[in-house]
Amino acid sequence: MTVSALTRPGERDRLIVKIGEIDWIFCLTLCLIAGAGAVMLFSIAGSSWTPWAAPHLARFALFFAIMIVLALIDLRVWFALAYPIYAVAFMLLIAVDLVGHHALGAQRWLQAGPITIQPSEIMKIGLVLALGRFYHGLSGKSAQLSWWLLVPAMLILAPVALVAKEPDLGTALLMLMTGAIVVILAGLSWRLIAGGILSVVLLVPPAIMFGMHDYQRKRLTTFLDPENDPSGSGYHILQSKIALGSGGLLGKGYGLGSQSQLNFLPEKQTDFIFSTLAEEFGFVGCASILVLYAAVIFMALRTSYLSHSHFGRLAAAGVTATFALYVLINGSMVMGLAPVVGVPMPLLSYGGTVMLTVMVGFGLVMAVRVHRYSEVTSGKGSLL
């Protein structure tokens, strides 16, 4: 007897309908980006599947399957799990502060035997879910400007402070900006937005002077004047700019990038893989990848727009904002338009943690699409 024989016809039909509701063009676009990443990782490893290209494809295949499974989960289940996921992620961040694993000069991980967890990645999803659930039951007037704003402010600032303490400034800034975008989309008053921008501008100088670690301030001064220390702190960005500029319109050719092949370009498989792409495929190759990223962002935002629930709209928009910020920050970083903060290019760069976060997030986006007509009910803006 097969498994399908044990499934009632109605359940099988509903499952087929749900699978048919998944945006498969969206899924294909994700596959194209991940495939381009594997092509680049194969090149920079000297035309070898190891140590990067094969694991990259294997991870993507696994996480793609996870994304499809998550897409079939009813939106009401995501809603019910929003606060628990946030709470678990927050407790794990506290655990990192107390007993976290040290590596590369930072304390960002929890280690249990062979398993290493980076709780800040879980929090990226938990934060979006928690904010979406909170604003789902809040009236438009309360979302604009009221004492209710203290709740999302604490939901955002508490984990951001813990992540910044690790220290992981790039992830902290990404979470802060994602949270701010969700709050703005929820209906925050434009007067308060303007006041917030002014406050940030006024707080930046003292934050740089007293709130940053020495190496973080050095990254900022390097960003402003990388030529001041070309063989030291400015080396990364200068080599990245050389790779970007030398690619020209069509690039030097596949496997012929001198900056990556001769190991002048640091972190060529992670943070600076976009520079490698520019050197080998030029402006045309970079533009093609950016078009794919733009397509993913557009389709995810369209899914957010189609949702009949406020929770679904905000959750999908928040995940999309996180993804877009990854692309924006990494692209700006490798071009010298932003300080180097260790944010990878999603699905293109090597690394399982960020890829898992992105694919779980897109599983939520697809769940919003599949269950866009679901009625999600709750009480008013309550954390209960």
Rank of each mutant, 00 (worst) to 15 (best):
A315S: 14
W24F: 10
L328Q: 04
A143H: 01
S258Q: 12
L155I: 08
V69N: 10
D229C: 02
P152C: 08
A130D: 07
L57C: 13
M123R: 00
L41H: 07
L347D: 03
S246W: 05
L301Q: 04
V183H: 04
G245H: 09
S189E: 10
L92Y: 02
S4R: 14
R12D: 11
G257W: 01
Y293T: 05
W147N: 13
L356N: 03
E267F: 10
Q107P: 06
I94Y: 00
A95K: 10
L72F: 05
Q144N: 05
G113N: 07
A82K: 01
L162E: 06
R133I: 00
D23M: 02
K218E: 15
A65V: 13
P206Y: 01
E227P: 03
R133E: 02
F79G: 02
S260G: 14
L348E: 03
V327Q: 00
K165D: 12
Q107R: 15
D225C: 06
S374D: 15
S4I: 13
G336W: 02
C286R: 08
L256M: 13
V319E: 06
A324D: 01
G132I: 02
V163I: 13
I16W: 15
R302T: 14
L185W: 07
L150S: 11
R313F: 12
Y215A: 10
Q216L: 09
G126K: 05
F90N: 08
Q144E: 11
I85W: 13
N228V: 12
H308Q: 15
L62N: 08
D168P: 05
F281G: 01
V360T: 11
L129W: 01
P344N: 07
S378V: 09
V160Q: 07
F90H: 09
E267V: 10
A45W: 02
L169C: 06
V39A: 14
L41S: 07
L30I: 09
L157C: 15
D225N: 15
V163K: 00
F272E: 09
M333V: 14
I22K: 04
A106E: 06
F311G: 00
S48R: 10
Q216N: 12
Q269L: 10
L306F: 07
L290E: 02
F26R: 02
R133Y: 01
L174H: 08
I156T: 06
G318A: 08
I85R: 08
S307L: 03
L265H: 03
F323Y: 07
G318M: 05
L145P: 05
I73K: 11
H101C: 09
A95D: 10
L131S: 03
L155Y: 03
M154V: 14
A316N: 05
F90C: 10
A321N: 05
M177V: 15
S246V: 11
G37W: 01
A338K: 04
I33R: 00
A87F: 13
F134T: 00
V291G: 08
A367T: 08
G126C: 08
G211P: 04
G105M: 11
L328N: 04
G257A: 07
A186G: 04
L192G: 10
P152T: 04
M359Y: 06
S48W: 04
V39C: 11
P339K: 00
M355K: 05
G211L: 08
A186V: 00
L384Y: 14
V341T: 12
M335L: 14
L192H: 11
V358Y: 03
I156M: 09
